Amino acid sequence: MNFRTLGKSNLKISEISLGTWQVGGKWGEPFDHKNADEILNKAIDGGINFIDTADVYGDGESEKAVGRVVKSRSEKIYVASKCGRRLNPHVNESYTIKALRGFVEDSLKNTGLETLDLIQLHCPPTEVFYRPEIFELFNTLKEEGKIQNLGVSVEKVEEGIKAMEYPNVCSIQFIYNMFRQRPNELLFDLAKKNNIGLIARVPLASGLLTGKFSKETTFDKDDHRNFNRNGEAFDKGETFSGVDYDKGLAAVDELKKIFPNADLPQIALKWILQFPEITCVIPGASKINQLESNLKVEGLSDLKSEELEAINKIYNQYIKEDVHQRC
C-alpha cells in the first residue's frame, strides 16, 4: 500500500481508503453489522488505514461498526466522520454552534472513540462557507480533544475554494472520477498551494464506471440510483456523478473499447490516483470481492498517455457539456 499526506494534518494515509456509506449492505437495505465487520477488517488487513464514515450512514450504525472494529485492532487506523446532514431542514439557518457540537459528541458516542482524527462538514449549503463562526467552533472542539482535524465535504468546486480560506481546514472531499473532471483545474492548483488534502469520493460514479450496468438494469426503490437521478432527494451529483444515465452508458461502452481486457473499476481508480494532488480515493464496498478488487489497483501500472488522452476525448464528447459547469 502506498501512503500520501493529508494536507496540513500531516496524517500519512493509504491512497486506497474506504468509504462506508454502503459497507453494511447495499443502498436501501437494513445495516448488516456482520457484513460491515468483515469488510472493515479485510480493508485493514489489506493495508487501508483511513476509513471515512458519517453520522447519517445507516443512521449512526456505520459509525458504530467503524468504531468497534478500529478499537479491536492493534494498527493505527484514522477515522473520519461528517456532520450536518442530520439537520432538518438542511438549510443554512439550521447550522448552529449547538447543533454541530451535538453532532460531534454523538459521533464520539457512536464510535466509542475519545477523539475523531478528522471531522468534516457534510456538504452544507453554500452560505455556511461564508460564516466564520461555524469554522471557529472546530478550533474549540480541537482544544477540547474531541477532534484532531477539520475538513469539508463539498458538492461544488467553489465551496472547496472558499473553505481553503479558513486556516483550520486541512482537507476537501469532493466528487471526482473520469466523468467528473472539473476539480482538476483550479481546485487542484489551489489545494497544492495551500497544502490541502484532497479526498476523492464517488470514484466509480455510483457504479456506472464498473461497466456492469445496462439500459435494462433496475435499482431497488430505496436505492438513490432509482429515486435521485434528477436530484429529487439531495444533490444530483451524488447519483451517477450527475451524468445522464443513458449518456453514461454510451461513454462506458467507449471506455470498454480502450480497455477491452481490463477491470474497468480498477482503471477508474487508477486514473484518479495518477493525479499527485489527490491524497486518497474512498470507494465503498458492500461485498468483500469489491474491496479485494479495489486493493488490486496498487499493483497496476500507470495508464499510458494515449489512454489518458482517449479518456479525456470521451469525457469531452459525452459528458462535459452536461456536467462540467454544474460542479
Rank of each mutant, 00 (worst) to 15 (best):
K193L: 13
L108H: 01
A200D: 06
A205C: 05
T279Y: 00
E277T: 11
K313S: 15
G84Y: 01
S9V: 05
F129Y: 03
S72A: 05
Y57G: 01
E29N: 11
L269N: 12
L269G: 05
F135Q: 04
I175T: 04
I39V: 14
P125V: 03
E159Y: 10
W27L: 08
I311G: 02
G197E: 09
F50H: 09
G231S: 01
N10G: 03
G237A: 06
N184E: 13
K156P: 14
E136I: 15
D322R: 00
N88E: 14
A200W: 03
G151W: 15
T96F: 06
P30T: 02
L100W: 09
P30L: 01
L269V: 14
N289S: 09
D32W: 01
S72W: 10
D263K: 05
K221P: 09
V202R: 01
L187F: 02
R326I: 14
L116N: 03
Q266I: 01
L141S: 02
E216R: 12
L187V: 08
K320Y: 04
G47D: 09
P276E: 15
D223I: 05
E38R: 13
E277R: 06
P265D: 11
L209K: 02
E38M: 10
I13Y: 06
G231W: 02
Q22L: 15
F174K: 03
K215W: 10
S206T: 04
L190R: 15
D117Y: 01
